[in-house]
Write a protein that binds this DNA or RNA. Sequence first.
RNA 1: CGGGGCGUAGCGCAGCUUGGUAGCGCACUUGCUUUGGGAGCAAGGGGUCGGGGGUUCGAAUCCCUCCGCCCCGACCA
Length: 473
Amino acid sequence: MLKAITPKSEDFSQWYTDVVRKADLMDYAPVKGFIVIRPYAYRIWEFIQKYLDARFQATGHENAYFPLLIPETLLTREAEHVEGFSPEVAWVTVGGGEALSERLAIRPTSETIVGEMYSRWIHSYRDLPVLINQWSNVVRWEKATRPFLRTTEFLWQEGHTVHRTKAEALSETEQQLEAYRGLLHDLLAIPAVTGIKSAGERFAGAVQTYTLEALMGDGRALQAATSHFLGQNFAKAFNIQFLDEDGVLKHGWTTSWGASTRLLGGLIMVHGDDRGLRLPPLVAPIQVVIVPIAKGGSGEPVNAYCQKLKERLAPHVRVVFDARDEFTPGYKFNDWEMRGVPLRLEVGPRDLAAGQVTAARRDIGAKIALADGELEVTVPQLLEDIQKSLYEQASAKLRAESVPIHDYHEAMEHDRRGFFYGDWCGEQVCADRLQEETSMTIRCLPLGEEPEDSGCVICQGPSRHRAVFARAY
RNA sequence: CGGGGCGUAGCGCAGCUUGGUAGCGCACUUGCUUUGGGAGCAAGGGGUCGGGGGUUCGAAUCCCUCCGCCCCGACCA
């Protein structure tokens, strides 16, 4: 067993804390609730950014940057929005040594400042659609924080669009949800349930919120990304109006959508095991590590081979040759496994003699011999296999822990671990009662699922929706 | 915001009960030997004991007070 990390099965929460710190993903900052995202984790975030940016731009979006501070009068313009966010807003009240005449909110999200600007920019149907994304930080003063999953400040992207018609805005909302689904599936190897949020869980000020819900290693749900159809709520609050082709002044239809550094927490909790992190190759800062085993007088030839091997592989994969002399091979094995490197190539005198290297897969732990001659081909192939294998493992777990129920007490038999599919009457009182009694919430109303008409799992009243119930982060 | 835990070297801890020169393991530095799953020996460096106040000849230790952090629950990406 790994010395540094508490086993998952023993204490999932402690395991998570151990992994994020021991794998050098983050460190706690001097202010409560704030963390430093260290280079190894930030690199993963950069892969996420690169993927999303490409998708956004392929669908006509541009990046821009809006200010960090929002005047109070602007933040409070949309009633539901301000009600939802006001408890967690941080305020700036002093500048240049003097009290400000109006306090300034540190953005918890940017709908309001963006809305204000859009109202100035949009006059005609010819100005639409406006398709803008921004990469930024936001601050939400949280009572209980956890590294990556819920920090006071976090990094994200927030897209803000305005459309001429309701149909176009709805289509935009769905398109971005699909971009996020792609991110999870293609890059992060995380399967997720797509659905819409119930009224109680909806974004403050939205008409409809689409969500991706992923299942963590401890059977709890994580909202991985959301896409909101805002209707004309913000357009009316911020006077986003345009003169349409028919000469009529109309309000625009807006959307917003976001994904945050919380995804890093999800990535860790979905794939990690007792040895530490397991990174999907596509987001692994280091995909392959070469560990030399220099026994007796074999140091020179082994190291020379490893160096050459690194140079051979470098054009194909992100590879590191661990030439540190101060650590034994055994130490290095554990160290790189903890950091989640997908593939390790061991090279010792026996390998040299046999014309091979020994490959150890992080996803399944198996070791196999690879012939020296074809490594430029077999190594990238193995990485592809590992990427798929991690998705399959997570997918199998999701299937195994997706449980249909007819009464919410059945979830207790599964220790509330997993996604529980059941009918819901649609009444908030039932959702509230469920949460009070079980800590479970309605994660979403999954797309493409119809109620069984077997009665609400809480009150046994008429079925109105199919819902996924779970405990959530 | 409730419940619990904890602040002593970079990390993990002992010392506190019963006040008397601040310790252990890991990590770090140097040297030698090692290397197929967390190496060994030797010699070193490193401390406002979370802050403030009090008691005392003397406080890591006793008293008061403040601060901070982590974990678990209720609210939120």
